[in-house]
Amino acid sequence: MEPLISVRDAVKKYNGKVRALDHVSVEVACGEWVTIMGASGSGKSTLLNLIAGLDRPDSGSIIVDGVPVHALSEREQAKFRRETVGLIFQQFHLIPYLTAVENVMLAQYFHSMADEGEATEALTRVGLGDRLSHRPAQLSGGEQQRVCIARALINQPKLILADEPTGNLDAENEAVVLDLFQKLHAEGHTILLVTHDPVVARLADRRVSLRHGCVSHVTSHT
C-alpha cells in the first residue's frame, strides 16, 4: 500500500550553508501516528514545514497523498495546505481579536465557506462548547491549544501535523491535549507530531529521531 507521506532524500539548507536536513527519508502510512524527536536544531520543524508545504526542499522529494508537494507552485501549495493538512502549532497562533469560534471559522473560510454551526460542534468536541465567544486572551494555554486543534480538524484533513503541541502547556493541560490526540488516532487520523518529550513520543506508533539534520534511528512502539 502507498504511504500517505513519502519523504525521499530531502535536503534543506538555510542561507546556502546551514544544512537543516541532510538527505532525510521518512514514510508514514495512512492512519499512523509518528513522532519526530530530536534536540533543538535537529531539523524536526524544518521537516514538518516541508511536509506541510510551507517551505521547499533544496533537493529530494516530498509526496503526500500522491501529491508532489516539493514541486507545487505557491498557489498549489496553498490549495494543498487548506485541503489536505491540519496544522497545530506550539505557539497556538490564534488571531487575538477573533473569538474561539471565529478562529475556527477562519479555516473554513479559507477552505470553502464558513459555517458557525460546524465550528461550534468542533469546539464542543474538544470540550470548549462554553468558550465559543471567548477571545484567545480570555482562554488558558490548554484551551487555546484545543481551539487550535478544532481549527486543524474543521476541514477534515487527511493529515494532522503538530509542531510541539504540548510544548507550552502545564502537565494538566498537556494530558487533556494528548488525550485528544489519542482519540484522533483512534478515529483513524494520520498524525505527524514533532516533540522533544519522550513521554509524548511513546504514545505514537513510531518514533523517528533526528540528529544534526539526519535520521539517527526509528523506533516502533507497536
Binding site: R75, A78, R81, R82, L87, A107, Y109, F110
Partner: peptide, 12 residues
C-alpha cells in the same frame, strides 16, 4: 503568515 499557513490564497 497564519492565514497563508491555513491555506489562504493571495486573493483572500
Amino acid at each position: 503568515g497564519l492565514m497563508k499557513a491555513l491555506g489562504a490564497a493571495e486573493e483572500r
